[in-house]
Amino acid sequence: MTPYEILWQPFADFAFMRHALVGCLALALGCAPIGLFLVLRRMSLMGDAMSHAILPGAAIAFIAYGLSLTAMSIGGLIAGLVVVLAAGMVTRATQLKEDANFAAFYLVSLASGVLLVSKWGSNVDLMHILFGTVLAVDAAALVFLAAVATTTLVVLALFYRALVVESFDPEFLQSMGGRGAWAHFAFLILVVLNLVAGFQALGTLMAVGLMMLPAASARLWAKELPAMLCVALGIALVSGYVGLLISYHGDLPSGPSIILTAGLAYFGSLALGRRGGLLWRWLGHEHLEA
């Protein structure tokens, strides 16, 4: 096999592969920076919780409208936003911390979703919602993915400073009268949007992987935020492309292939990362003079 056959021919020959590639790249553009902020705000598990939370919305839409991507996306979006807003409001109104409320709401939401699907759907449907299929991404889905990526990048650019300050020193923002809660909510809505965008391509459970794995890896390479964003983006984009190739050549499901590729990048970073990677820890015994 020539390099061309390995690296590009699948995309040249098949429209569904091109769609899948463009979809994955769009998804990576939005997910990577979102994931990095999740990691920095110590909310790594929040993405996971939210991915479960959108399930009942998608399930209800599936039962009502069949396998319609639009309906399922809107359903998932509504369920995700309800959980985000409800957990946020309960956090502000009561003693409970945000993570506990998110856990409570997503579990209720997930259980409802599973209940709905098993009562009115079939197991095949459930598998589809849980694990998605990037190879079924059509033109309408591509437009949706591109729109989400664009929205994410624009909103992140606008809220960048507020998000950084909210993460670094929330009390300072509060004392300056800056409404940190707005930045926080805007960010959580972006998380939901990206998960909804991801679930049809990668499945609800896999979508989180494209957020968290590149972000966690990036912390091991760069020391400043802009550089971290670049590294996370790079790893996410490459994982999408390489993962699709592996899935095509190996005849493997696409979602897990993409996430496992990102997982490999994570393990590689753990070993080699310039900022705290194991190799450098092991080598860096000699201390400096000053």
Partner: peptide
Amino acid sequence: AAIDRDFPLS
């Protein structure tokens, strides 16, 4: 207490 001193900020 509330400041994240690990945050990647210059």
